[in-house]
Design a binder for these strands. Sequence first.
DNA 1: TAGTTTTGGGACAAAATTGTCTTAAATATA
DNA 2: TATATTTAAGACAATTTTGTCCCAAAACTA
Lengths: 145, 145
Amino acid sequence: MRVLSKATVYGLRALVYMASERERTGYVSIGEISERLNISFHFLTKTFQTLTQHGILESYRGPNGGVALTKPADQLFLTDIVHVLEGVDFFDKCLLGLPGCGTFAPCPVHDFWKAAKEAMKNEFDNTSLAELGEKVTDDRFRLVA
Amino acid sequence: MRVLSKATVYGLRALVYMASERERTGYVSIGEISERLNISFHFLTKTFQTLTQHGILESYRGPNGGVALTKPADQLFLTDIVHVLEGVDFFDKCLLGLPGCGTFAPCPVHDFWKAAKEAMKNEFDNTSLAELGEKVTDDRFRLVA
DNA sequence: TAGTTTTGGGACAAAATTGTCTTAAATATA
DNA sequence: TATATTTAAGACAATTTTGTCCCAAAACTA
């Protein structure tokens, strides 16, 4: 049951890593993140560029440059990231791929799937990067194989 | 939120179509299904071949040949199909893609995701092709754009 | 100013998924 | 037996996703 593309998975892991570095101030370099999390530097860079373009991150070039969250981590939610990286229709797709599947013209699994999506969206709406970062900092949860 | 590959989506739609043809006896040709559901004939054929190889369908060649469910539609569940087309580890994957993510070494979203997967699996375990086929027969639900 | 570090952006390659086509094998019918 | 119908199987192409590489632009440091 694969729900997120690799680009999104890497982006999320990287953002949670940033959020987990609580006390730290200033920019974090993409090189550091990619090393720590074992993610391809260039691939992550591209994902981060779209996050920057969409206001999730701000970046700064040069020595001591890098990226930083534009808001405190407790104000950035999974839904925000997923909307940018997977599209705003992420929680709005038919399980059987039918375009325009809805209450008026539903597929046979519409009712169940609608509920499942809502539960998922609810969780994503209420889970912040800060919350996930803390779990990593407290060391009971991991971000890397 | 895309969960199933196109191969699985097409396969499922086709199977539900077969189940929806209640009174019918004998084989249904792949050509008929692909026409009715607007699915590429050759692509569907390949998916059906793997379903045949895994005992979900039986096939018969020649005039009046086609495919048929190996069991009554009320004894075939979504989980059966998904296990064949997506793999038996379908309900067992980490949202963040970490290999071996589990209670002992969880990712930060493990608890939520585990529950979500269980809910999903529970629904798939208990939804039969017959149930979905009926919904289509009764005409309140659709399988095609 | 020159050199180093870092992101930005594009070209490009590899791999996986999706889709098309051709031929063979099995079966029925005339 | 010859022909038509249907699935089986594999080659192949197109598309999307994933991954790599190179060079430019921005910023710091000496």
